[in-house]
Design a protein around this nucleic acid. Structure first.
Length: 643
DNA sequence: CTGGAGCGTCTTTTT
DNA sequence: GACGCTCCAG
């Protein structure tokens, strides 16, 4: 493939970022500056220069972005491009750990515990430690633990820094939580990263293997990396320093999750020989939109000085709509979308963005009423539904008969007369006799304290799951899923209910089966399915070809673009969020959030707010967001419900 | 001991 | 509007 193709159509800065292949590179890429193109071309360029695809590690923020990267590279280079490691931090770590842990005497078949599992487990921990959930909320303790893991502190290290009474209790919870995870052969999201770094630190030969393997490392959305992620890339790049990071400090919106903006601000200090390339030409938005966004974000004290420019002069002013109520706001948005549709704007070119997920409801109702198709940018919504999680828990138990979290989830779902007391007896039996949970179920007749019906129900469940587990290896995963939901009575139970709700759930399960089938036909096995299940994100399920407008949070819209964008709920207490008011650096993050939202728009930008809003306690008066007043008046076209 | 009804509480953003 | 908790009938 001639080199000229790979550089075709790039501006000089972009070309520089693509062709600087040896040594550290910091690409400061403003919103809409062709970042994905640069990443794609860079990988293609490396391969065209003879770099083996398998020695390129490209870390992206979502699986969707990773897949897009792969597809676009293959479009450029064809078969030659196969083998690039394009994935998220978490998927890369899972892959490394599954490969390496068995050689170190540890299990490579761990289950990934998602946030729901974590909370359930933490509840148990707190109960065991006699800590009241009022004072020590599971999410609060988990947040502290997550922060510790982000800073690479295990329970022992954390103990050294735990000073307050609260922290010593958290420390105890941390220790017990980790012990329980080990017993379950589970890892939470943070463990995946921390364990990988720990393994690299304690086993230099393993680290050396990956340092040799990945001759070139690329990291996207670098402004949103946290300490472990930073450490991980630093370790991997230590031997050759062929590390290219792409980011924009103005788009750092994940500090609540430990993202450290210093990683990007201080990259040049970490790698003194580093080349810095700034991409400031924007190919996405009109000048009006860029000016509006710039005038907001310029108010942040902590940022690198820069300003985007575009060859597209002018543009439509930003419409600011003052609504009478939340319903009126939704009515306005729906009405405008209908008008735009008449003018020929396709629905999938329109997005509605809000600060919190709960805000979607009013809009969904208005859209349903008017028959406007929409899809919510929150793939986890589907996967987090109770019955979907139940179904996956059955699969988890088939794969790992010691997965106590999955076991407890489904042992009495549908109701089988096996309540908490019976479950405790079964798990105790398993622990004492050294058998797994499914074997314990099958041996229910030997468990003391269970009554007749309980013994029968438990044995049946054990036989059903055990039987299917035996067959699972040789058949496609969707068949296994269907069989287990039938044989354990899950689907029959829903069928028997015959309510509208149970029908919906059955439909959801059918959808799940269909998606597993698609996954299987693409060559995926049961194990891979369950693994990626825990790692799917909001964006991963987004289908841009569907004829529907998109709704999502500001966060979930990261990296996406739309012709028309509505930013709704532009009120004090919503954006900036009430919990961010008071702390200047949190206000700055909220401001960046708005910046990200505004720069999603290519042609037309709306911002709306309402004078009154339904709050948790009755109707509240609202005030327009402080950020709106930072936008120069001449860029705005102000409308109210009275017009 | 289990399952279901009814009640109060809390809801920022997410890999 | 989802979930945990309490209370009571079987």
């Amino acid at each position: 493939m001639p080199e000229i193709d790979v550089l075709q159509g790039l501006n000089s800065k972009q070309a520089e970022a693509v062709t600087h292949t040896e040594g550290p590179l910091l690409i400061l890429a403003g919103a809409g500056s062709g970042k994905t193109t640069v990443l794609t071309r860079r990988v293609a360029y490396l391969i065209s220069r003879g770099v083996h695809p398998g020695s390129i590690l490209a870390i992206t923020f979502t699986n969707k972005a990773a897949n897009e990267l792969k597809t676009r590279i293959e479009a450029l280079l064809g078969e030659k491009a196969k083998g690039v490691w394009a994935m998220t931090f978490h998927s890369a770590c899972v892959r490394i750990l599954r490969t390496e842990l068995p050689g170190l005497g540890r299990s490579g078949r761990f289950t990934i515990m998602d946030s729901d599992d974590q909370v359930k487990l933490m509840r148990k921990v707190l109960k065991e430690l006699n800590l009241s959930e009022k004072q020590y909320t599971p999410s609060g303790v988990l947040k502290a633990i997550s922060a510790a893991k982000d800073n690479l502190m295990g329970p022992e290290e954390y103990a050294k820094t735990a000073l307050t009474f609260y922290e010593t209790k958290v420390q105890q919870a941390y220790e017990l939580y980790q012990r329980k995870l080990r017993e379950l052969d589970g890892m939470d999201f943070d463990d995946l990263l921390m364990e990988t770094v720990m393994m690299f630190r304690t086993h230099p030969q393993v680290l050396a293997k990956y340092q040799a393997k990945f001759a070139h490392i690329l990291v996207d959305e670098y402004q949103d990396t946290n300490r472990v992620q930073y450490e991980l890339t630093k370790l991997l790049a230590a031997a050759h320093h062929n590390i290219a990071v792409v980011g924009d400090d103005d788009q750092s919106i994940y500090t609540f999750r430990g993202a450290d903006i210093r990683n990007i601000l201080e990259f040049e200090e970490d790698y003194p020989r580093c080349r810095v390339v700034k991409l400031e030409q924007n190919y996405r938005s009109t000048q009006v939109i860029l000016d509006g966004a710039f005038n907001v974000v310029r108010n942040n004290a902590r940022r690198k000085e820069k300003r985007l420019w575009t060859a597209q002069e002018g543009g439509q002013p930003i419409t600011l709509y003052a609504a009478q109520s939340g319903e009126d706001e939704a009515r306005f948005v729906a009405g405008e979308i209908e008008n735009l549709a008449v003018q020929g704007v396709p629905l999938n070119a329109v997005a509605i963005l809000y600060r919190t997920n709960a805000q979607s409801r009013t809009f969904e109702e208005a859209f349903v009423e008017r028959g406007i198709p929409y899809s919510v940018l929150s793939g986890r919504r589907f996967y987090d539904r109770k019955h979907i999680r139940d179904a996956v828990a059955y699969l988890r138990l088939i794969l790992n008969a010691r997965d106590a979290v999955a076991f407890e989830r489904i042992v009495n779902e549908p109701p089988r007369g096996l309540g908490p007391a019976a479950v405790r007896k079964i798990t105790e039996y398993a622990a004492v006799s050294g058998v797994d949970l499914v074997q314990a179920l099958s041996a229910a007749s030997e468990i003391k304290g269970l009554n007749g019906p309980q013994r029968k129900a438990a044995a049946e469940l054990g036989t059903a799951i055990g039987g299917i587990a035996l067959k699972a290896l040789g058949q496609p995963p969707h068949i296994t899923l269907r069989d287990v939901l039938e044989a354990t009575g899950y689907i029959p139970h829903l069928d028997a209910q015959g309510t509208a709700e149970s029908q919906e759930r059955l439909d959801d399960l059918r959808e799940l089966l269909a998606s597993v089938r698609v996954f299987a036909e693409a060559g995926g096995g049961l194990e891979e399915y369950v693994e990626q299940y825990a790692l799917v994100s909001d964006q991963d399920t987004y289908d841009e070809t569907k004829d529907a407008c998109v709704m999502g949070t500001f966060h979930s819209a990261k990296g996406l673009e739309f012709d028309v964008v509505f930013l709704v709920g532009m009120e004090e207490g919503v954006l900036p969020h009430a919990r961010s008011i008071g702390e200047e650096h949190q206000i700055e993050e909220e401001r960046r959030l708005l910046y990200v939202g505004m720069t999603r728009a290519k042609r037309i930008l709306y911002m709306t707010f309402s004078w009154s809003r339904e709050m948790s306690l009755g109707l509240g008066r609202a005030r327009v967001s402080r950020f709106v007043s930072e936008i120069p008046r001449e860029l705005l076209d102000v409308k109210t419900w009275e017009d």
